[in-house]
Computed example of a mutant assay.
Amino acid sequence: MTGKETKTCFRSYTAWQYQEEVDWMNKMAAEGWALERTNGFVHHFSRCEPGAWIIRLDRPSFKMSSPEGQEYLAMLHDFGAEWVGGVNGWIYLRRRADQGEFELYSDLAGKEHLLLRARSQMLFVLALALVGWLGSLLLAVCSSESFMAVYPVIYLSIPIAVVHGLTRLNRQLKAVRQERQLHE
């Protein structure tokens, strides 16, 4: 293949931006770029017919290497879907558009559970970020070096960013729950 037949994109999304990431990958597919593999940061595409693929992102509650994960992948394969990569529990899937609609969560309860799994992951990251910040604060207090005082300020930006993300994720969760109440 020539350089015009493949494309590599470096993009990073957070858990609360999962729908934006799905929308971007499907836009790439609509423009004739098939997602071939990804680790969540580096996305490899190859030229295809525009609109030939539908891309989905999932966050199962189990590891893909577990028996449940293998069963899930087999079910997806039977449905015509392919696993193309993953990162931190998130998995990237694609299915040919000519096979019909491709929805992983056809109901609001499934979407709610996906958001709850993403929120749990974010809470774990927040806990780690706070431990890192407390460690940097302790180092700054115990150190005689004046430049060390900057570290707690720098490390505080991580928990602040995670709290911002959790706020956005909670808004999405609230919207799904409100929609569920309307339909129940």
Results as ranks from 00 to 15, higher is better:
residue 142 C to M: 13
residue 119 R to A: 04
residue 111 K to M: 02
residue 154 I to M: 12
residue 133 W to H: 11
residue 163 V to Y: 04
residue 125 V to E: 06
residue 110 G to T: 03
residue 106 S to M: 02
residue 141 V to W: 13
residue 126 L to V: 04
residue 104 L to G: 00
residue 142 C to V: 11
residue 157 S to G: 10
residue 136 S to E: 05
residue 141 V to G: 07
residue 116 L to S: 04
residue 115 L to F: 08
residue 162 V to I: 06
residue 163 V to T: 08
residue 110 G to K: 08
residue 166 L to Y: 09
residue 152 P to K: 13
residue 98 D to T: 00
residue 153 V to K: 15
residue 173 L to R: 05
residue 143 S to Y: 01
residue 168 R to S: 10
residue 114 L to M: 13
residue 124 F to K: 15
residue 119 R to V: 06
residue 111 K to H: 07
residue 119 R to C: 03
residue 173 L to S: 05
residue 120 S to F: 11
residue 100 G to M: 10
residue 119 R to K: 15
residue 160 I to G: 06
residue 123 L to P: 00
residue 137 L to I: 09
residue 97 A to M: 08
residue 172 Q to W: 03
residue 113 H to D: 04
residue 138 L to Q: 10
residue 140 A to I: 08
residue 136 S to P: 08
residue 169 L to V: 13
residue 168 R to D: 05
residue 163 V to W: 02
residue 156 L to F: 14
residue 108 L to W: 02
residue 95 R to P: 00
residue 100 G to I: 07
residue 170 N to H: 12
residue 141 V to F: 12
residue 154 I to P: 11
residue 153 V to Q: 10
residue 162 V to Q: 00
residue 152 P to R: 15
residue 160 I to N: 02
residue 159 P to T: 07
residue 166 L to V: 01
residue 167 T to K: 12
residue 157 S to H: 12
residue 123 L to V: 04
residue 160 I to R: 12
residue 104 L to A: 02
residue 165 G to H: 03
residue 156 L to G: 09
residue 116 L to A: 06
residue 156 L to C: 09
residue 156 L to V: 05
residue 145 E to W: 14
residue 157 S to F: 14
residue 127 A to L: 13
residue 123 L to A: 00
residue 114 L to E: 07
residue 155 Y to M: 12
residue 108 L to F: 05
residue 98 D to A: 02
residue 121 Q to P: 00
residue 123 L to H: 07
residue 96 R to G: 09
residue 122 M to Q: 15
residue 139 L to M: 01
residue 159 P to M: 04
residue 138 L to G: 09
residue 108 L to G: 00
residue 145 E to M: 09
residue 99 Q to D: 03
residue 132 G to D: 11
residue 135 G to D: 05
residue 167 T to C: 12
residue 143 S to Q: 06
residue 139 L to A: 05
residue 133 W to C: 12
